[in-house]
Design a binder for these strands. Sequence first.
DNA 1: CAAAGTTTAATTGTGCACAACTAATTATTT
DNA 2: AAATAATTAGTTGTGCACAATTAAACTTTG
Lengths: 149, 149
Amino acid sequence: MKELPDSAFNPLLKLDNQLCFSVYALSRLITKAYQPLLESLDVTYPQYLVLLLLWEHEELTVKQLGEKLLLDSGTLTPLLKRMEQRQWLSRRRDARDERSVVVALAPAGRVLQQQAHEIPVQLAEKMQLTMPEIEALRTQLRQLITLLA
Amino acid sequence: MKELPDSAFNPLLKLDNQLCFSVYALSRLITKAYQPLLESLDVTYPQYLVLLLLWEHEELTVKQLGEKLLLDSGTLTPLLKRMEQRQWLSRRRDARDERSVVVALAPAGRVLQQQAHEIPVQLAEKMQLTMPEIEALRTQLRQLITLLA
DNA sequence: CAAAGTTTAATTGTGCACAACTAATTATTT
DNA sequence: AAATAATTAGTTGTGCACAATTAAACTTTG
């Protein structure tokens, strides 16, 4: 009997079939789709996510940012230092608990918010999805996230 | 009138509402879910994706790998060099077109395939999804991928 | 055929992402 | 109170990911 490639027996090993690869590829494509919109602000996508949170909450500890973004200090500390250098935010130890570092929105970070208004709208257009479609997809992904997180 | 935070007016700016963040977070969680399964092979997730393709196709040019994985030579070249050092694959210029580099599965890479059989199954279990659910989700994601790619 | 243009990898430099570890502070236990 | 444990950021080292550039090989065109 002729030998067949393994993927003939185990179609799960075929790349095209893999849900995980789709998520991985889509994630990078989304970052690229954001890039032309973000580069006018000279902000990377992870930095934009931090700004989204600070626009909403004004100040958060590194730990709180990490919980919301699912990132650890090894990623956040250098990222926040770069953002501090550009004066978008400030970092200071919490007086009530010197272990914590409080990250607060700075005036220049507030200015960026004005320029960011159209970004979510433009991106939704790029993805050509209706609101209900976006809702449904996000709900499914969030189920997986809570499962794996 | 009292000032409200901007996200009250523009809920799209709220992180929790963002489809894009869900994809980004899920992608990293999936990589982490793979990690305990892949570390027994001492392979990273992107390296595993390359292996999946080589198990299927035996040999591919860097360009073909890039097209399938949506990665460029800046990412692939150093990754493939590391895999070549471990003797999982070989790299050689194509005699018919010296611009191309042919990446071919090496015997040690074939051995890895045996150990990888259970990985997709174990991951599907972790995600607690039925096959139809996986299919449906993947179809939606692939639509977005072709749109953005 | 020669010049101009295209294709393919490699290189360089920046910024995540994360595991493993360290150091400092706070909380808990005895 | 002293010893122990837990929490929080920071540090170090490795590996992607990608933009921008370079260099070599091939293709097309005048």
